[in-house]
Simulated scan of single mutants.
Amino acid sequence: MQDSPPSLAMDGYASNVPAFLTKLWTLVEDPDTNHLICWSINGTSFHVFDQGRFAKEVLPKYFKHNNMASFVRQLNMYGFRKVVNIEQGGLVKPERDDTEFQHLYFLQGHEHLLEHIKRKVGWW
């Protein structure tokens, strides 16, 4: 399988960052979508609130689908992990629909690290 060709980054230089990651960064950064997806307080993860509304209202603006499961599958393919709240032990469902994801190289203010996020090979 071949990666897509490098795209031009905003600064005009070639970027090896896959389109999915560029779109993800853009939508997490977009203040207009903060009620449905935003950075965590410390900027080391991001939250998706109200998955139903997020899938219906936000996903189609950035992707060719409105399927939350497909979005999560993509995150998993790039090594993102769901954050489990220790106090809840992962057994108690949070009161609000809030899912948190993190990746070592997906950090607020550090867009240059996106090039280190690689799609898993043979993940299936």
Score class of each variant (00 low, 15 high):
residue 47 H to K: 09
residue 98 D to H: 07
residue 40 S to M: 03
residue 10 M to Y: 08
residue 80 F to Q: 03
residue 19 A to V: 11
residue 80 F to P: 04
residue 54 F to E: 01
residue 90 G to R: 02
residue 21 L to D: 00
residue 81 R to F: 02
residue 60 P to N: 06
residue 52 G to Y: 12
residue 106 F to W: 05
residue 100 E to H: 02
residue 83 V to P: 03
residue 86 I to V: 13
residue 64 K to N: 15
residue 49 F to G: 00
residue 100 E to P: 02
residue 26 T to R: 07
residue 8 L to D: 10
residue 36 L to G: 00
residue 73 R to L: 14
residue 39 W to Q: 07
residue 75 L to M: 13
residue 81 R to E: 12
residue 58 V to R: 00
residue 53 R to H: 11
residue 35 H to G: 08
residue 108 Q to K: 15
residue 66 N to E: 07
residue 98 D to L: 11
residue 41 I to E: 13
residue 26 T to L: 04
residue 14 A to C: 05
residue 34 N to A: 12
residue 15 S to R: 00
residue 101 F to K: 02
residue 57 E to P: 07
residue 58 V to A: 01
residue 56 K to N: 13
residue 74 Q to A: 12
residue 96 R to F: 08
residue 87 E to L: 12
residue 78 Y to D: 02
residue 51 Q to C: 15
residue 69 A to F: 09
residue 33 T to Q: 10
residue 38 C to K: 15
residue 22 T to Q: 09
residue 103 H to V: 01
residue 11 D to G: 12
residue 111 E to W: 03
residue 102 Q to D: 06
residue 76 N to A: 06
residue 14 A to F: 12
residue 57 E to G: 05
residue 46 F to I: 04
residue 104 L to F: 07
residue 35 H to E: 06
residue 47 H to E: 08
residue 68 M to R: 08
residue 48 V to D: 00
residue 104 L to N: 09
residue 20 F to V: 06
residue 53 R to G: 09
residue 86 I to C: 04
residue 9 A to I: 05
residue 45 S to R: 01
residue 85 N to L: 12
residue 84 V to T: 14
residue 97 D to C: 09
residue 19 A to I: 04
residue 24 L to G: 02
residue 106 F to G: 08
residue 37 I to T: 01
residue 65 H to L: 04
residue 87 E to P: 06
residue 36 L to V: 00
residue 108 Q to N: 14
residue 93 K to C: 13
residue 61 K to T: 08
residue 34 N to V: 06
residue 94 P to C: 03
residue 72 V to S: 07
residue 39 W to R: 03
residue 60 P to C: 04
residue 15 S to K: 00
residue 38 C to F: 03
residue 60 P to G: 04
residue 103 H to R: 05
residue 24 L to E: 02
residue 64 K to H: 10
residue 109 G to N: 09
residue 25 W to H: 08
residue 35 H to F: 10
residue 26 T to M: 07
residue 67 N to I: 08
residue 93 K to T: 14
residue 58 V to K: 00
residue 80 F to L: 07
residue 46 F to G: 04
residue 92 V to L: 10
residue 39 W to M: 07
residue 29 E to H: 09
residue 21 L to F: 02
residue 22 T to C: 07
residue 62 Y to V: 01
residue 101 F to D: 09
residue 111 E to D: 05
residue 99 T to C: 07
residue 86 I to K: 15
residue 63 F to H: 05
residue 63 F to W: 10
residue 87 E to C: 06
residue 52 G to C: 10
residue 10 M to L: 13
residue 58 V to E: 01
residue 33 T to R: 04
residue 52 G to N: 13
residue 73 R to H: 12
